[in-house]
Structures are given as C-alpha cells and as structure tokens.
C-alpha cells in the first residue's frame, strides 16, 4: 500500500519527466559531442570570429532599436484599453506566430528591388537586402514583439493610482513615466529585452532570406553553424556551444533580475498593486 501511495505521490513528477528529457537531452548531447580541443579548433576556424563579431554587433543594435522604438509602443498599448489597442496588440503578436522565413519574404517585398520601397531606395542609391542593415531589420522584426509584449505587460501592472499621484505631486506625464512607470516596470522590461535579445541572436530564417549568408556581412552565428555543418561538423558543434553559452548568460538576468529588484523594495515583485486600468469601481 505504502509503495503504491508513494508512486501516486510521485506521479506529478514522473509525468513531468518526459518533457524535461525532451528539452534537456539534446543540449547535453551537444555538450558531450565536443571535447575542449574541438571547441578550441572551432574557435580558430575562419568562420568563427567574423560570425561572432557580426552577431554581437547586430544583436546589440537590434536590442537598442527594440528598446528605443518598442518602449513607447508598449506604453501606448498598456495605457489604452479599446478596440484600437487590441488590434495593435494582435499586429504586434503577428511576427511571433508567422514563420521567420515568411517574415524574410515580407521584408523582401518591402525593401527588395521590386518591393514597396525598392524603387525609392534605389533612386537614393540605397540597397538594404543582403546588407548588415538587413540582418538588423530581420532581427528586429522577429524579436521585437517579445520585448514589446513583456514591457506592455509590465506597464499594465503599474497601479494607475501611482501615476495619478505622481501627476498631482507636480510631475509631467514624462516625469511620471520615467520616475514611476519605468522603475516599477523595469524587471519585466529587462526580462523582455533579454528574451528578445536571445531570439535575435538565434535568428536564422528571416536573415537567410532577406540578408543572405555572406561571410563578414550577413553571416551571423546561426548561419555560420549552417555553413559549417556542410564542411566540418566539429566546427558547427563548437559554434553551437558558444551560442548555448551566450544564451545561458542571457537567461541569467532573465531569471534573477526581477526577483533581485523585487527584494530590494521588500515586495514580492517589482511592480505595485494589481492592474488598475479602465473605469474603476468605487
């Protein structure tokens, strides 16, 4: 009896194990597939350096674009509650559900030679497809929704009364935004930015179609892995491990920062009271 009861007690964990294995085993296999010597050899491979440098540069620029342009959008989404903002929210979600390859085609249709802005751009002597700019555009389009949704959610959690109080205490809308809304939403914004950065770092489909696979110009880490796999699998594994390391580094602030900030204020999370938008009661 006791044995069966303990089995029943363990059932939730046992039921959880298959998914855990599905997620963890491939990464463990990747780690086991490569010796330190292989990794060192991979790091010396001519594909490695330029791809790492390009990935670092482009994802940092993408991150800056996402935060600078995405924060105002997420604030707008969080402070409106109407049909218009619901439509906008769905539009922002769209790149999450649309396959990245499709986003690549969509970008070509926008900036390509025969695309929407193609003639205008070429008359100015500008070309975007198959340039580093295209890499950034692909990363931004595919990753920004993750940041925007996370920061809109964080802004929505800021108690509306706190913003009203800030205004009655003499602060302008911008003052209330920067001194109250942003500090309180910061954990969520940071988590969203880390997630979006990780997504940009892994961007493959849209980049391949819109920016191509040109070493030094558009060949980011994921594309270099793809190229390396055709010639030398060991290099692909080494590149992959570096990406895993970078992603793990991103995951760290994603998991710890919100809790750290929350602890500083002595609250469970960084935000104030539950959401208080729309016409209130009372």
């Amino acid at each position: 009896m006791t044995g069966r009861r303990s089995l029943a007690a363990r059932a939730p964990f046992l039921a959880a194990v298959p998914m855990l294995l599905i997620l963890a085993v491939p990464l463990l296999a990747l780690a086991g597939a490569s010796s330190p010597g292989d990794i060192a050899a991979g790091a010396r491979h001519p594909l490695f350096g330029p791809a790492l440098w390009l990935s670092a540069r482009t994802t940092l620029v993408s991150l800056a674009v996402m935060v600078l342009a995405g924060t105002p959008l997420s604030w707008w989404m969080a402070s409106r509650r109407g049909r218009r903002s619901r439509i906008v929210e769905s539009l922002v979600d769209l790149p999450i559900v649309v396959p990245p390859a499709v986003m690549g085609i969509a970008l070509l249709e926008t900036f390509g030679r025969n695309g929407l802005f193609g003639p205008a751009l070429s008359s100015l002597g500008l070309q975007i497809p198959f340039t580093t700019t295209a890499v950034i555009a692909a990363q931004v389009v595919v990753s920004a929704p993750f940041y925007i949704q996370a920061s809109a959610t964080a802004f929505r959690r800021v108690d509306e009364d706190l913003l009203i109080v800030a205004r009655t205490l003499g602060h302008s809308p911008a003052g209330a935004f920067f001194r109250v809304a942003v500090p309180l939403a910061l954990p969520g914004m940071v988590a969203g930015a880390a997630l979006a950065w990780a997504r940009a770092l892994g961007e493959f489909g849209a980049t391949l179609l819109f920016a191509g696979n040109l070493p030094g110009t558009t060949q980011t880490m994921p594309l270099a892995i793809y190229t390396a796999l055709e010639s030398d699998a060991r290099v692909a594994v080494a590149l992959s491990l570096v990406l895993v390391g970078a992603s793990a580094l991103l995951l760290f602030p994603l998991r710890t920062l919100p809790a750290l900030i929350g602890r500083r204020f002595g609250t469970g999370n960084g935000a104030g009271a539950p959401p208080g938008r729309g016409l209130p009661e009372g």
Binding site: D159, D161, L162, I164, V165, A166, T168, L169, G170, H171, S172, G175, R179, V180, P183, L184, F265, G266, T267, G270, A271, G272, A273, G282
Partner: peptide
C-alpha cells in the same frame, strides 16, 4: 492632493523620497 485607496505609495522609493517626491520634479 490625492491619497488613493491603498495609499498609492511608490514601492521603489524610501519613505523619505516618497514624501519628497512632490519637490523632485516639475
């Protein structure tokens, strides 16, 4: 002056900075 239900204190500021908030900007 507005004191909302639940007091609306800024959780990220100390008590002193909460009170001083009305002189912190604007």
């Amino acid at each position: 002056g507005y004191v909302p239900q639940g007091y609306g204190l800024f959780p990220h500021l100390t008590v002193l900075d909460n009170v001083a908030f009305g002189l912190a900007g604007g």
